[in-house]
Nucleic acid binder design. Structure first.
Lengths: 165, 165
DNA sequence: GAGTAGCTACTCGGATAGTACATGTCCGAGTAAACTTGG
DNA sequence: CCAAGTTTACTCGGACATGTACTATCCGAGTAGCTACTC
């Protein structure tokens, strides 16, 4: 699985903490984790295309959650980055197998069904977890995490402090 | 997920049908599905290294199951081909994050735990299914499949028929 | 002093290289069967 | 006819190319805010 999934999930959790209506730039998120900013931006673009994030250009621009964090599942983020294809793709190799069972056998391939069933359980498990749920768990376990994150992400943004001396 | 997983699973099911003690060459298995023989051979080598198959060289050589098919789970085959690493690898990006929560946060990263939990359910699901179970399901649904497969895999093997004329 | 035109700086967005892994192919080591030859 | 030595053909096993996708980077389009100028 690609690295971008981890970055996207962390970014979504962080953005669930920032004030609504205020966008966070990819550069600031990248600096938070010491990540390559341009590449993180590319991943967030995929989330925009999936309708998970909304983007605004220009100064004070950036990304923000497109809907409430309790309506964004972990599966949504994973599929946005990795694509909707199943991990196990049955190429239907049986259609070339000899014997009189080609078509039917291929459609009802038991191996494909087994793999698909396992993947469905995996997806179901991820769809049960939401960004908001993870954020709440983190808040419970690390009471300072939210405040610290918001401070790092919104502090000294745009507002140039008065030049001293 | 790699294509070899599908080939390996089908090959294991087929070998669960062939008589014990008789090896099946990769060339014959590849011809059954119209697959590149050398590449299938490469995949089966991985199963040998994992202790799932046993290989014998020379004429009448090939591969055979190293243990009873009801003791080989689908997960065993998948891990033998794909490797034992988790699909989602948490690189611990939080260790570079600012704030006073680095080490603890990284070790107990909730996102990593969520992804890991989903993967555990996936693996559990696959570990419940055995090669023998899949083979039996196929036999029930397609009564002729086993006989036809064995005939294709063992027919005219080595035994050169008497030259006519 | 207030309004407006222009400029600057900052952001996303997609197009562009670099790299690791999966895919596909090839040849050599080893072995069991088949053949030949001598008794 | 039988047995031992030799040859042969077939197999796995790992080393060698190729293609694809992930990773990483750069530059242009667009916009909000600031600045300067005019009234």
């Amino acid at each position: 699985m690609g690295q971008g999934v981890e970055w996207a999930l962390h970014s979504c959790v962080n953005m669930s903490w920032t004030p609504v209506g205020e966008a966070v730039s990819s550069a600031r998120l990248a600096a938070f984790y010491r990540l390559p900013a341009a590449y993180l931006n590319k991943q967030l673009q995929a989330l925009v295309r999936a309708g998970i994030l909304a983007s605004v250009s220009g100064p004070r621009g950036g990304f923000q959650l497109a809907r409430r964090p309790d309506r964004i599942s972990v599966l949504d983020v994973v599929l946005a980055i990795e694509g909707n294809d199943d991990a196990f793709r049955c190429e239907g190799i049986l259609k070339d197998a000899p014997g009189g069972m080609e078509a039917d056998y291929a459609r009802t391939c038991l191996i494909s069904q087994t793999m698909r069933h396992a993947e469905v359980t995996w997806r179901t498990e991820l769809s049960r977890q939401s960004i908001a749920g993870i954020a709440q768990s983190i808040e419970r376990r690390f009471p300072d995490a939210r405040e610290e994150t918001v401070r790092q992400l919104t502090g000294a943004r745009g507002r140039q402090e008065p030049r001293s001396a």
